[in-house]
């Protein structure tokens, strides 16, 4: 087991190192450099910036030097927790991202919970009632969730929240709780705002997981041990939930690792529409304004988040299913 953890840790570390390289490449991708567009933006707003200052900035970021030196300058800063300066916002990237990253995690985690609480029972139900009307209905619903573009669903749900329930739209808190200390009321307020992003980000993932769960269950349900248990007179409910479901969950957990990247992507676009204080809108603005340093860092952090999520799910899986450790 320890060996397995060590091996997985090393793999995760290697992946993260590679991710940093890719992020850096993406920072470098746009033609010209970000300083040019920064200067252009400034001059549009009526601010001007002398040529010498541009040169100074150019040196600070190592622009014009060989690419590996630029990478070295960048990564050594990043490792020390210095993520550089966002050019568009004019503040250190550090001050912009952490709160938003936390919110991203919170929304993603609650979406995962939502997906699980929906997908597992439905998957089990569909498997035990294969080809029933309800099975078809849920399957269809799952596919529908997969088919509706997230942003459209978000827009529609937001509109429904606005025009039918006169709900506060956008953001995660009502204005009165925005800066309030944590309390039960604030938590409830958060929940009342969280349901839209949760549902929207969850819908696309749910369909896939229902399918997986259903298939896994079908595999297990026909196994002889189930027959045996049934023959012994176990109640059907206990019979299903005690054995096959637990076994079926194993491969399920491993798919969670792959669901995570999709989910975080889903949260990104939903957050843009719903004005959530997560990292998604920040990423979009950084990309649109070619603030590539900020964009690269965000992409890297999101990827690291995913790698860690997968890592954890692998470890969990190894705990639940000893066979994995030997693989």
């Amino acid at each position: 087991m320890i060996q397995f953890i060590i091996r997985r840790t090393m793999m995760a570390a290697a992946t993260i190192a590679l991710i940093s390289v890719v992020s850096f490449i993406i920072i470098q991708l746009p033609p010209g450099d970000f300083l040019t567009s920064y200067v252009a933006t400034l001059s549009q707003q009526g601010d001007t910036i002398p040529e010498e200052a541009v040169t100074a900035l150019r040196e600070a970021y190592g622009l014009g030097e060989p690419i590996y030196i630029q990478y070295y300058k960048w990564i050594s800063g990043v490792v020390q927790g210095d993520f550089g300066q966002s050019l568009e916002w004019g503040v250190p990237v550090n001050t912009l991202i952490w709160d938003r990253l936390r919110m991203t995690l919170a929304v993603s985690a609650s979406s995962i919970l939502f997906v699980w609480t929906v997908a597992i029972p439905i998957g089990v139900f569909s498997a035990t009632n294969q080809y029933s009307l309800a099975d078809y209905f849920f399957t269809f619903l799952g596919f529908l969730g997969l088919a509706i573009p997230n942003f459209l669903l978000a827009l529609i749900l937001m509109w429904i929240g606005f025009s039918w329930f006169d709900q506060d739209v956008g953001g995660l808190y009502s204005p009165e709780y925005q800066n309030a200390p944590w309390s039960m009321a604030k938590f409830i307020d958060l929940l009342s705002h969280l349901w839209i992003p949760m549902v929207v980000a969850g819908t696309s993932g749910t369909a896939g997981l229902i399918r997986t769960m259903r298939a896994n269950m079908l595999d297990e349900i026909n196994q002889p041990y189930v027959e045996t248990a049934r023959a012994k007179g176990l109640s059907e409910l206990r019979l299903i939930w005690k054995y096959p479901v637990r076994v079926a969950l194993n491969p399920f957990i491993s798919t969670v690792g792959y669901a995570l990247p999709e989910l975080i992507g889903g949260v990104t676009i939903v957050a843009v529409v719903l004005n959530l204080p997560t990292i998604g809108p920040l990423l979009l603005r950084a990309l649109l304004s070619q603030d590539m340093y900020l964009a690269g860092i965000i992409l890297m952090l999101l990827s690291i988040l995913t790698v860690l999520g997968t890592f954890i799910s692998d470890i969990l899986l190894a705990i639940f299913d000893p066979r994995i450790r030997l693989e």
């Binding site: 937001m158 739209v169 204005p175």
Partner: peptide, 20 residues
């Protein structure tokens, strides 16, 4: 004076309609 943060104009438009 309180300046609420928004990213997408849709949200501002809904805030306006809600009297916020």
């Amino acid at each position: 004076m309180e300046h609420a943060l928004f990213d997408d104009n849709t949200v501002l438009d809904l805030w306006i309609a809600q009297g916020r």
